[in-house]
Amino acid sequence: MCAYVLVAEDDPKQAELVRRYLVREEHSVLVVADGRAAIDEVRRTRPDLLVLDVMMPKVDGMDVCRVLRREYDLPVLMVTARVGADDKLLGFDLGADDYLTKPYDPRELMARVRSLLRRAQRPTAPRIGDLVLDPIRHEVRVGERRVLCTPAEFRLLATLVAAPDQVFSRGQLVEQAFGLDGHITERTIDVHVRNLRKKIEADPREPEYLRTVYGIGYKITDGRRLGG
């Protein structure tokens, strides 16, 4: 299951360790270093899971959990060096879904992450390599980079990603992505493709994802997997 995980951890070494393990399981990850940033990022991007350290600057993890639980039904895995039973009970009372004490085995952390994501049962975001579409948030990510797309660009990209490596003519893309919208023409498809390449490709002139099939149309593929 590919998910977008927000990690709130002020210890750079610990944050990087968690990030590496999450990326290894093909999750998209964003790391923030204080509680205020964690609240702001959850409100802005609505992650699938929050890995939350308790002892953080600006706003501690307990208060972060208290604030967010009033606003969102978000799975929260609380991580802390506090080992007292009262701290653990307080974390659960504030809305944490799971609680892990430091030091911990990263494999146990990942097992708990997988369990929380299964329980959340949110739809898996379509993915091609590092390109991820989230239909719930209407959001596109390339690796850890968030890409801002127009509604028309998102619909076109979603149509292509739903059928990896399938070649679509411009007419098929007009029909399947936009239906009876008379403002979208085959010429418009070319404009949207050009704009999408600027946003999702490292080099729009040598696209890895959004490929032209000359004489026919376009397809989406993981060009790096195919060796370019």
Results as ranks from 00 to 15, higher is better:
Cys149Thr: 10
Thr124Ala: 14
Asp97Arg: 01
Tyr104Lys: 01
Cys149Pro: 03
Arg170Ser: 06
Gln176Ile: 05
Arg122Cys: 06
Asp134Trp: 13
Glu144Cys: 12
Ala85Leu: 14
Pro164Cys: 10
Ser115Trp: 03
Asp181Asn: 12
Met110Gly: 00
Asp97Trp: 00
Asp86His: 12
Leu109Thr: 00
Glu153Asp: 07
Val113Thr: 04
Arg114Ile: 03
Gly91Ile: 00
Tyr99Trp: 00
Ala96Lys: 08
Ile128Thr: 13
Glu175His: 11
Ala152Met: 05
Arg118Gly: 10
Asp181Met: 03
Phe154Ala: 02
Gln166Glu: 07
Glu144Gln: 11
Asp134Pro: 15
Lys102Thr: 01
Val193Thr: 14
Thr159Asp: 02
Glu175Tyr: 04
Leu133Glu: 13
Met110Gln: 02
Leu90Phe: 10
Asp93Gln: 09
Pro123Ile: 03
Phe154Thr: 07
Thr124Met: 11
Gly84Arg: 04
Glu144Tyr: 10
Val140Arg: 06
Asp190Trp: 03
Ala158Thr: 14
Arg127Thr: 15
His183Arg: 07
His138Trp: 04
Leu180Ser: 14
Gly84Trp: 04
Arg187Cys: 07
Arg114Glu: 05
Pro106Phe: 00
Ala120Gln: 06
Leu156Thr: 08
Tyr104Asp: 00
Val132Thr: 15
Arg194Phe: 08
Val167Ala: 11
Val191Glu: 07
Glu153Pro: 05
Leu133Cys: 14
Ala162Met: 06
Glu139Val: 15
Arg107Val: 02
Leu131Met: 07
Ala162His: 13
Arg194Asn: 10
Lys102Asp: 00
Phe178Asn: 08
Arg145Cys: 10
Leu160Thr: 14
Gly95Thr: 08
Gly91Lys: 03
Gly171Asp: 03
Ala125Tyr: 12
Gly143Trp: 00
Val161Asp: 04
Pro135Val: 09
Leu94Met: 10
Gln166Thr: 13
Phe178Gln: 08
Pro151Ser: 03
Gly129Glu: 03
Arg118Asp: 07
Asp98Leu: 02
Val167Thr: 14
Thr188Gly: 13
Arg137Asn: 14
Val167Glu: 04
Thr185Arg: 00
Arg145Lys: 14
Leu117Asp: 09
Pro106Ala: 00
Gly143Ala: 01
Leu157Cys: 01
Cys149His: 01
Leu94Gly: 15
Glu108Ile: 11
Cys149Trp: 04
Phe168Asn: 11
Arg119Asn: 12
Pro106Leu: 01
His183Met: 03
Arg112Asp: 00
Ala152His: 12
Pro123Phe: 02
Val167Lys: 07
Leu89Cys: 08
Asp87Glu: 12
Asp181Cys: 09
Leu157Asp: 09
Ala152Trp: 05
Arg119Val: 01
His183Val: 05
Asn195Val: 11
His138Arg: 10
Arg170Leu: 08
Leu160Phe: 08
Ile189Cys: 11
Val167Met: 02
Gly129Phe: 08
Phe92Ala: 15
Leu100Gln: 03
Ala85Thr: 15
Asp87Ile: 09
Pro103Thr: 11
Met110Asp: 01
Arg119His: 13
Ala158Gln: 13
Leu173Ile: 01
Ala96Asp: 06
Arg155Met: 06
Val167Asn: 10
Asp165Ser: 10
Gly171Tyr: 02
Val147Ile: 15
Arg187Phe: 05
Lys102Val: 04
Arg141Phe: 15
Lys102Arg: 11
Pro126Ile: 06
Leu116Asn: 09
Ile189Phe: 09
Leu148Cys: 12
Pro126Glu: 01
Arg114Met: 03
Ala152Cys: 07
Asn195Glu: 12
Arg155Val: 05
Pro135His: 10
Leu89Glu: 13
Ile189Arg: 06
Asp97Leu: 03
Leu157Phe: 09
Glu139Arg: 15
